[in-house]
Design a protein around this nucleic acid. Sequence first.
DNA 1: GAAGATTGAATAGTCAATCTTT
DNA 2: AAAGATTGACTATTCAATCTTC
Lengths: 164, 164
Amino acid sequence: VDAWLTDDEQRVWRSFLAVQVRLAAELNRALHASSGLSLADYDVLVRLSESPGCRLRPSELGQLLDWEQSRVSHQVTRMQRRGLVGREECPEDRRGAYVVLTRAGRGALERAAPDHVGTVRRLVFDGLTTDERDALERFSGRVLGRLGTGGSDGADQKAVPLPE
Amino acid sequence: VDAWLTDDEQRVWRSFLAVQVRLAAELNRALHASSGLSLADYDVLVRLSESPGCRLRPSELGQLLDWEQSRVSHQVTRMQRRGLVGREECPEDRRGAYVVLTRAGRGALERAAPDHVGTVRRLVFDGLTTDERDALERFSGRVLGRLGTGGSDGADQKAVPLPE
DNA sequence: GAAGATTGAATAGTCAATCTTT
DNA sequence: AAAGATTGACTATTCAATCTTC
């Protein structure tokens, strides 16, 4: 078997890796500078804001974000300390809990979102043709398909009524 | 201004984010299971193995991997403890240092590489048409271009003479 | 005993000093 | 004082228990 990637494949693979690393770093940097939120904070707030009653079970949150349970739990604890989310008991299943978006959390999201979306636009979508966008979606779909189970759900964006 | 992404853009963006998260998780999981190396370990070993004399200054390594200096330093310390790399003094510039690949480090890389490359093939390149591959490269190039400075260099793969 | 969730210890990564040489 | 590098403290993430309810 050929153990290596072809030169073409390798070139593509390395640029893809570079995009991941740098884009994530820049999005994080920009978001944190303008709002004090990390990308992880932002994603949690978005998911909560999209959910009925602005509340989710930790396990649901974990599935949506592709995070382990303990990561969710630690993250929620830290955000709770800052007043961005709260915990409530679950009436039906007394093992369970709810993570709920607080007023402050919603406020933080609403303040952070426009800038963050702007950054994504500027770095990714502006100057991307429709074809290129479609190609990217096809690529993502293919790889996700091969990654087994889950819904093709991701994490980010369009959360909340919002300014304008 | 429109603060939000269009529905199309949002769909694409979320799949792209999902791919990043899941692909990285799966590559890490598979690599670690088969070799005991993390993706970070692997990338460092690859870069060293590609360098003349199998040695790099920490700052060069940082540039190649898009890592901060302190991250490089901590990572090297941990890998040094495991015998995968060593440190040497730099004759020219006595502020500086070299990180060098050890025999054990090369061995670990050679053992890890075939499986890892196989995973990348299986998850990403198999079943990707040439057009799709080109599209991915164009996309990466565009975004990297907008991310400012650096060479379009990434991180990974094809390191070392290797088995076969 | 399995599911939902949390906790604590260990590993990784970031940020702000620090130290040495230039 | 700036460049190369390291260190220590702090934050984030993972991994292996643990605890409660089903």
